[in-house]
Design a protein around this nucleic acid. Structure first.
Ligand SMILES: [Mn+2]
Ligand SMILES: [Mn+2]
Ligand SMILES: [Mn+2]
Ligand SMILES: [Mn+2]
Lengths: 220, 220
DNA sequence: ATAAAAATTTAGGGCACCCTAAAAAAATGT
DNA sequence: ACATTTTTTTAGGGTGCCCTAAATTTTTAT
C-alpha cells in the first residue's frame, strides 16, 4: 500500500521520466514536489525499499514494473475523475485538475471501475490525455504539435501538453478546444508564430509558445 | 483548515453527542477511533486550541458552533457521495460507507455543490439519513423505531439506525429497504419480536434487535 | 467517609514526512 | 588534470499523530 505521498512521487517519476523511461534526478523531483532534495532522498530510499523504484545513489531513479503499475493506477483515477467533473458536473477543463489531485488517491478499484463504466469508458481526459486501462496499460496517443504542422494542412485538435489554468482558459477563449478543426494558413518564419483558422471561423493568430503545446492529429 | 484526522474527530463527536448535544467522553472517542485514550487527549487539546470544541479537563467535550459546522460539512459530503455511488454507479447500500469515509475528506465546496445539483438535491442518503444543507443545517428527520409501532399500524420504512454491512444485507434480503410499506401484524410480548407484512407480501418475522434499528414513518 | 475501581491526563517515545547545514560525489571549465 | 561548481546524500532536528506506562482525578462501592 503506497501512501498518498508515495503515490504522488510515483506519478511524478512516471511523468518526468518521459516516453523513454529515462532516469529522473533528485533535484527534478524536489522542484516538482515543492520540497528539498534531502527530503526527496529520504523518500527514494523508502520507495526503493518497497521495490517501487530502481535506485542507486547519485544515479537517478526509474520505476520498477510494480512502481509503474501503481503510477498508472493513480493517473487512471486522476483522469477519470476529470472526465466525471467536466462531463457530468459541468466544470470547465481549466478547473478540474487541482480537485483531481485529491480524488486520485481514493483507492477503491470497485469505485473507479464503476466510474469508468458510468462515463462510458472514455479514452482520454478533458485535456486529451489518454486514460490507462483497468489492466494497467497506457494507450499510446501519437499526436503531433500544432507548431509542426505545415501550411495548408488541416488537423483536428486532440489535446494539450501544458495544463495550467491560464493556458487552458486562453485556449477556450480562442475556441481552441479538443475536437476543433484547425487549418494552418500561414507560418511566420522568424518567430514561428502561425495564422490559423478554427472551425471555419475568422483567422486567428497563435504564438509558437502556444502552438507547440497544442496536440493535433492529421485529418482523416 | 482541519486535517483528515481532525475532521474524523469532529464528525465522531457530533455523532456521539446525540440529539441532545451531550458531552462526549474521552474513552468513547478512543473506542470509536480505534486509538488509545492518551491519543484522544492529545487531539482534544489541539481541537480546543483551534476553537473547534469546548474542552475542560476530565469534563468531556462538546462541539463549538464552528466545530459543528465543520462536522456537518463532512457529514454532508459523506452522504452525498453515498447517494452518488448508489444512484449513479449502481453500488448496493451496504457497500458504500467505507468508500464514503475516504471521499468525505475531499474539501472542494464547488465539487460538492455541483454533485448535490447533479444528484437533484437529495434530502437523505441511501440509509435514510438526512443530508445537511449547503448552509450548514441538519434537516430534522423525526422517524420512530419500527419496534415501537403498535399492532395493525401501517408505516413506511425510512431508514436505519445501524449501518453495518451484514445488517444492511440482511434487510435487503428480507425486502426491507427504504420506501417499503410495512404493517405490524403481531407483537410477541415476551421478546418484543414482531410479525410484519412487507409490501403486501408473505408475513415476515423480525427480532426486537432488528426492529429497533429500523426507522419508519406513519403512513399519511 | 474512605477505599477501590474507572476514567483521564501527563510523561516520554516512535514513525512518516519535512527541514537546514554540512559532507561527499559527480560534473564542468580551463 | 585539477580546481570549482553543481548535485546528491548524510546528520540532526521538527511537527502530526500514534503508543505504553505512570500519575492524577473522578466515580463507585461499602
Ligand atoms: Mn490533471
Ligand atoms: Mn496527488
Ligand atoms: Mn455512511
Ligand atoms: Mn473519515
Amino acid at each position: 500500500m503506497a501512501s498518498l505521498t508515495e503515490e504522488n512521487y510515483l506519478k511524478l517519476i512516471y511523468h518526468l521520466s518521459g516516453p523513454g523511461y529515462e532516469e529522473v534526478s533528485t533535484n527534478a523531483l524536489a522542484e516538482q514536489t515543492q520540497t528539498k532534495a534531502a527530503s526527496v532522498t529520504d523518500m527514494l530510499r523508502k520507495l526503493a525499499e518497497k521495490n517501487l523504484i530502481h535506485y542507486k545513489k547519485y544515479q537517478g531513479v526509474r520505476l520498477t514494473e510494480e512502481g509503474q503499475q501503481e503510477a498508472l493506477k493513480v493517473i487512471r483515477r486522476h483522469r477519470l475523475w476529470e472526465v466525471f467533473m467536466v462531463e457530468k458536473l459541468g466544470f470547465r477543463w481549466d478547473e478540474v485538475h487541482p480537485i483531481a489531485e485529491e480524488l486520485e488517491h481514493i483507492a477503491s478499484e470497485e469505485l473507479i471501475n464503476r466510474l469508468d463504466a458510468f462515463l462510458d469508458f472514455p479514452e482520454s481526459d478533458p485535456h486529451g490525455d489518454p486514460i490507462p486501462t483497468a489492466s494497467g496499460r497506457m494507450p499510446s496517443a501519437e499526436y503531433e504539435k500544432l507548431a509542426e504542422v505545415p501550411v495548408q494542412q488541416e488537423v483536428i485538435m486532440m489535446g494539450v501538453s501544458e495544463h495550467t489554468a491560464p493556458f487552458l482558459q486562453f485556449l477556450s477563449k480562442s475556441g481552441l478546444i479538443p475536437g476543433s478543426l484547425v487549418q494552418v494558413l500561414e507560418v511566420n518564419e522568424f518567430d514561428r508564430s502561425m495564422t490559423i483558422q478554427i472551425n471555419e471561423a475568422h483567422p486567428s493568430f497563435v504564438s509558437y509558445e502556444v502552438a507547440r503545446n497544442i496536440l493535433v492529429q492529421t485529418k482523416v
